[in-house]
Simulated scan of single mutants.
Amino acid sequence: MSNASLVIANWKMNGNRALTRNMSEVLRDNQADFKGVNVVICPPYTLLSEMAGHIYYDDVALGAQNVSEYESGAHTGEVSVAMLQELGVEYVLLGHSERRAEQHESDQLVAAKAATVTQAGLTAVICVGEDKAQREADNTWSVIQAQLEKSLAGLSAKQMARVVVAYEPIWAIGTGETASPAQAQEVHAKIRGWLVENYQQVGAKTPLLYGGSVKANNAESLFSEADINGGLIGGASLNGEDFCAICRAAKG
């Protein structure tokens, strides 16, 4: 039985106007099959407005892949929370491993962005995860715990109510490798325990997502685990039928 209720598509630096149209049509045609599952699409910035227009009347939420920690000002190339809100964005991905690696984003920067996002009333999706060397050295939990402590630093209980935590083992992102359901559940259970210890009832309700080569053929087994509340989907979210199949698996 599925324990999932949230599925987020992360298109990364992919997609075009045709994909926004096709994806919205496929979701609309199939949404009765996964009614009750919260579905979020995170296209690149350039497609946010286009996607917003297509899903305006549908039960699909819009998300962004990043945001500035600043409200406004002389920050060339940055996008503020207010700009995202004007487009109807409800969710923002923060601290994805690709941004941590390629843009050198620190946990402290993720925390600043999380504060900005949650203060504005949007939901921050905080990504955590270990690389292959860290897993092989049996440092998975110490790495993730440190990321949680630093990336959520300073958030109040009220702000934490607008946080989602996504566990994405770096070694499984775009590699075709996937943590087994048992491996994923082991980490999710530790994350849940840490959240409850630090945020009590709010932590008990924080949605926990798994990401890392989630596909239509493995989503059901992952989503059946007790502490996996959904998925952050990369490559499979670029195909409407595949993504809908994952959403159906979330409904169970």
Rank of each mutant, 00 (worst) to 15 (best):
Glu220Tyr: 03
Ala249Phe: 06
Arg99Trp: 14
Glu177Phe: 10
Ala182Cys: 07
Val165Asp: 05
Val60Pro: 02
Ala182Arg: 05
Ala4Cys: 06
Ser180Glu: 07
Lys215Glu: 13
Val67Gly: 00
Tyr70Lys: 11
Gln183Tyr: 02
Asp33Ile: 11
Val125Ile: 11
Val60Leu: 05
Val110Gly: 08
Gln200Glu: 14
Gln65Ala: 13
Asn198Gln: 13
Ala120Tyr: 10
Ala101Leu: 14
Thr178His: 11
Gly193Ser: 13
Thr123Phe: 02
Asn218Gly: 01
Ala182Val: 09
Ala61Ser: 15
Ile55Asp: 01
Val164Cys: 08
Glu98Lys: 02
Ala111Glu: 15
Gln159Arg: 13
Ala52Thr: 09
Leu47Pro: 00
Val26Tyr: 03
Thr206Asn: 01
Ser142Pro: 00
Met83Arg: 04
Glu225Lys: 07
Ala114Gly: 13
Arg135Gln: 15
Lys190Arg: 14
Gly193Trp: 11
Leu93Thr: 08
Glu136Ile: 01
Glu98Trp: 08
Arg192Tyr: 07
Asp242Ala: 11
Val81Asn: 01
Gly88Arg: 04
Ala111Leu: 10
Lys215Phe: 12
Gly129Thr: 01
Arg28Pro: 00
Arg192Asn: 07
Val117Lys: 09
Asn218Tyr: 05
Gly252Tyr: 12
Ala115Thr: 10
Leu27Asn: 04
Asp131Gln: 12
Asn16Ser: 09
Thr116Pro: 00
Leu62Asn: 05
Ile228Met: 09
Ala189Arg: 08
Gly212Lys: 02
Ser213Cys: 12
Glu136Asn: 12
Phe243Asp: 12
Tyr210Asn: 04
Ala61Lys: 09
Lys215Asn: 10
Ser24Asp: 08
Tyr57Ser: 11
Ser221Ile: 01
Gly231Tyr: 02
Trp171Phe: 13
Gly36His: 05
Gly234Ala: 06
Phe223Leu: 15
Asn38His: 08
Asn30Leu: 03
Ala52Lys: 07
Val40Arg: 01
Lys113Arg: 15
Thr206Gln: 02
Ala18Asp: 12
Leu148Trp: 10
Gly240Glu: 04
Thr116Gly: 01
Gly174His: 09
Leu93Tyr: 06
Leu152Asn: 06
Gln145Phe: 11
Thr140Asp: 04
Lys132Ile: 14
Leu93Ile: 15
Leu6Pro: 00
Arg28Trp: 04
Ala249Tyr: 07
Val39Tyr: 03
Glu71Asn: 02
Trp171Leu: 09
Asn139Trp: 03
Ala219Ile: 05
Thr118Gly: 13
Pro169Phe: 14
Asp242His: 05
Leu209Ile: 06
Lys205Pro: 00
Gln200Lys: 14
Ile41Asn: 01
Cys244Ala: 13
Arg248Cys: 12
